[in-house]
């Protein structure tokens, strides 16, 4: 292969529901696992309407900040792999049961790497869901976002769950990331 320009993405379309979701895909840990948390939110479009045909994936470090490099993500046999996949329901909700990732570097602000796919979205969108930690307040990347940093900040709900809504368009539009351009710069 001489041409190493990337293969373009295409929309996930409307008919992934029988293909991408898999049994217990949103359940990275078993119920009752010490430290298990619920990460959840709503995905909305530019009119504020929930998106019922989106796929969300999360990828996060282990609580001790290590990057898990173990197979079993599709198997869900009790192995924590750090990766999960959820489709939104009819009201645009997604949820995961997982562990809070730790910081991968001393003093770093821990976050879930998040990727969003949807019908009507021609390519995937990357974002980050930063956990409510003191390190978040001084994180240089978040600080550079000004007011928009709020869109990447996970909120702890009264029931202890973690909430991360995703807005594809509009006033509270989530900050989406471009890694490729950053590399070229």
């Amino acid at each position: 292969m001489s041409d190493l320009r990337p293969t373009p993405g295409q929309t996930v379309g409307p008919f992934f529901g029988y293909a991408l979701p898999f049994e217990r895909g949103p359940e990275l840990v078993e119920p009752g696992t010490p430290g298990a948390i619920r990460l959840h939110g709503v995905v909305r479009d530019g009119a504020g309407t929930p998106i019922p045909d989106a796929v969300i994936e999360i990828w996060g470090a282990a609580p001790d900040g290590s990057v898990v490099q173990r197979s079993g993500g599709l198997l869900r046999d009790g192995t924590f792999t750090g990766w999960g996949r959820a489709e939104t329901d009819a009201e645009g909700n997604y949820w995961f049961r997982t562990l809070e990732p730790g910081a991968t570097a001393e003093g770093g602000a821990p976050f879930f790497a998040v990727v969003v796919f949807a019908r009507g979205l021609p390519d995937r969108l990357f974002t980050r869901a930063y956990l409510p930690t003191p390190a978040r307040e001084t994180d240089p990347f978040l600080s550079g976002l000004g007011e928009r940093r709020r869109t990447l900040e996970v909120q702890r709900e009264p029931d202890g769950s973690l909430r991360f809504d995703i807005r594809l368009q509009g006033e509270d539009e989530t900050v989406f990331l471009d890694f490729v351009e950053a590399a070229r710069a």
Partner: peptide, 28 residues
Amino acid sequence: LLRHPTKSLVHADPETIELFSPVFGERD
């Protein structure tokens, strides 16, 4: 029309977790 971000994507340097991928194996 209602599903594309209207603000530019923000350039980010990948951090540690983003420099790795989940691992899948024969058992998956």
